[in-house]
């Protein structure tokens, strides 16, 4: 279980509070108005932001002071999820060894991950030679190979067209259920949340609320969320 215990994150004059827990294997959307702190919440879990107070724990172990790479977390960012100067296979291999000294077994794992996301023949290409959808698949293949129990998505597919985005989200859901990973996904689109996330954390007015049922929340939005959704 991922727990936020009286967590307080401060960035300049902005403060976000969170006191909540996420069940293992849950798929949770993080929604809220722009600038409310959705990415801030994810960056705190990933270890890119120091928290001012409280603690974050996973399976009972405190990870508040753990360096980013040692946390049980794999993250996809809004952009730059692949290194443009490395091949797709190298990009995925980094999920196993940050110095890319891969054993034969590990190379087999990389090939397997490529096959799993449907990029079997494209391992030697550079990201620039792939389409947007293929780049998304390559990044997901790395997340898959990292085998981290928590997966954080900070709108990595926002730049894709609607059909491609849906395809990516379905792949994310499939991979998450295969690996049993806990998923936290920032989204601007309520339809994304409805599609693959049974639960939702609402971030608004400096507070991240505990996860609630997505459909219920979106059908009966509180005033702040209603204003944001615009209906």
């Amino acid at each position: 279980m991922l727990r936020f215990e009286d967590v307080q994150i401060t960035q300049g004059d902005f403060t976000l509070r969170a006191d909540l827990s996420v069940d293992p294997g849950a798929r949770v959307a993080v929604i809220g108005p722009s600038g409310a702190g959705k990415s801030t919440l994810l960056n705190a879990v990933a270890g890119f932001l120091d928290i001012a107070a409280g603690r974050i724990s996973w399976d009972g172990g405190d990870i508040t002071a753990t360096p980013p790479a040692a946390r049980p977390v794999a993250m996809l960012f809004q952009d730059n999820n692949l290194f443009p100067h490395l091949t797709v296979a190298q990009n995925i291999g980094l999920g196993l060894r940050p110095d890319l000294r891969l054993s034969t077994d590990q190379r087999v794992l990389v090939d397997g991950a490529l096959d799993r996301v449907g990029l079997g023949a494209l391992g030697d290409r550079r990201p620039g030679q792939l389409s947007g959808g293929q780049q998304g698949r390559a990044a997901l293949a790395r997340v898959l190979i990292q085998r981290k129990p928590i997966v954080l998505l900070d709108e990595p597919f926002a730049a894709l067209g609607p059909a491609l985005k849906t395809e990516m989200l379905d792949l994310v859901a499939e991979l998450a259920s295969e690996t049993g990973a806990t998923l936290l996904m920032v989204s601007h689109d309520p339809a994304d949340a409805r599609r693959i996330c049974p639960q939702t954390i609402l971030v608004d007015e400096g507070r991240a609320a505990p996860p609630t049922d997505t459909a219920h929340l979106l059908d009966n939005p509180p005033p702040g969320l209603r204003a944001y959704l615009g209906n």
Partner: peptide, 20 residues
């Protein structure tokens, strides 16, 4: 643009220099 990804993958020291 790439530092956060490299950090999350544990690319430090020589590995970061060489591959990033």
């Amino acid at each position: 643009s790439h530092g956060r990804l490299a950090t999350s993958l544990g690319m430090t020291g020589a590995a970061r220099l060489r591959w990033l």
